[in-house]
């Protein structure tokens, strides 16, 4: 970029009205919830559990929200990529079971890494196929999109059953990732820390890509006004396919994390968590990555807090959060300006 321009820093720049309020919701919730528990240790446990779960939901939801933003395509079959990612771990866990049993952090983390790579590769490939066969013929019609992607979901779930069997499969966490870090009477499960780290890393990376690279700018521009992006000479279709594939791979990553978190695999596990994913992207504002991140944490923390304080209301609490957000901002926390 031209230095003569990049260096311009006039003093009287008008301030950008930044929309901070939604960003404060998560810390506010954490602080306000604290007194309800009476002791630090359960608050810390629940908060880390909530953050870990939030990160996983974010991984699963981010691709979906971008796909929607970019091409106005809603994929009700997105949950399949979560399940598929989870099952793909078996491809690695089978031959490399010894790595998981070994009492070595390096081997254990490598195993997790390989699981993630395998899952992302599988889900990216299936995502490409899914986009081609299922989604492409139904651009422009939400009704058909919903129907066809639900159909794709049914078929893909049945394939999972056919390949891996219909009964639940248990997966064990690698040896050194089990257990908790203990500080006094506060215990933090190791795996949750890993989930938070991976989630933050992906969010950071995504933020960088979206803000610092041309393809990221194109995605953001495309979410706002796809037609103008085309008029500038870019092929939005290609961009969309790459986002769809990347979103599927991220769902696969989320699936791996979710699989080790639950330690049980079922073909329907993706669809189960899709309920939360939909709530999150509605809360965040369809097409908004930032909103998706905030929404994920908000939902997961609420679910964990409520699950502890009033277990019966856990899932209902999500509906309540969603209702409150929509009353406050009918288009979600960060409404995306679409043209």
């Amino acid at each position: 970029m031209s230095s003569s321009v990049a260096d311009t820093k006039p003093g009287d720049l008008p301030r950008t009205p930044r929309d901070w309020v939604p960003l404060l919701l998560v810390p506010a919730l954490m602080v306000l919830a604290a007194p309800l528990f009476g002791n630090v240790s359960s608050w810390v446990t629940l908060t880390t559990a909530g953050l870990a779960m939030g990160m996983m939901i974010f991984l699963m939801a981010s691709g979906l929200t971008l796909v929607f933003g970019l091409m106005d395509v809603i994929n009700f079959g997105h949950g399949v990529f979560i399940s598929l990612g989870a099952y793909a771990t078996l491809l690695v866990l089978g031959p490399l079971a010894a790595w998981g049993e070994a009492d070595s952090l390096v081997l254990n983390l490598s195993l997790l890494g390989l699981c993630i790579l395998a899952a992302m590769a599988v889900t990216a490939a299936v995502g490409m196929l899914f986009e081609r066969v299922i989604v492409r013929p139904v651009y422009g019609s939400h009704l058909k999109q919903i129907l066809v992607t639900v159909g794709g979901l049914i078929v893909a779930e049945q394939f999972i059953h056919a390949i891996w069997g219909a009964s639940p499969i248990t997966v064990a966490l690698p040896q050194t990732l089990r257990g908790a870090f203990v500080f006094g009477d506060v215990a933090i499960e190791r795996y949750r820390v890993i989930a938070v780290v991976i989630g933050l890393a992906v969010f950071g990376l995504m933020h960088l890509v979206l803000n610092r690279t041309r393809i990221g700018l194109l995605i953001r521009a495309g979410v706002e006004n796809a037609e103008m992006v085309e008029s500038l000479g870019y092929r939005i279709r290609r961009l969309f396919v790459s986002v769809f594939v990347a979103g599927s791979a991220l769902a696969g990553l989320g699936g791996v994390m979710w699989a080790f978190y639950r330690q049980t695999l079922t073909a329907g596990m993706g669809m189960d968590v899709m309920v939360l994913v939909f709530i999150v992207i509605i809360i965040g504002g369809l097409g908004s990555i930032g909103g998706c991140f905030v929404g994920s944490l908000l939902i997961a923390l609420t679910a964990n807090y409520v699950g502890f304080l009033a277990p019966k209301l856990a899932l209902v609490s999500n509906i309540l959060v969603m209702a409150l957000v929509l009353i406050w901002r009918p288009q979600g926390l960060f409404p995306v300006n679409r043209q």
Partner: peptide, 26 residues
């Protein structure tokens, strides 16, 4: 339905699953 018809599908899914949980909890 006031916002977008697409919300309806997602929200009905969420509400229905909440109801399912509620029914087995109560």
């Amino acid at each position: 339905l006031r916002v977008r018809a697409i919300f309806f599908s997602m929200i009905t899914l969420a509400v229905a699953s909440a109801m399912l949980v509620l029914a087995s909890q109560l």
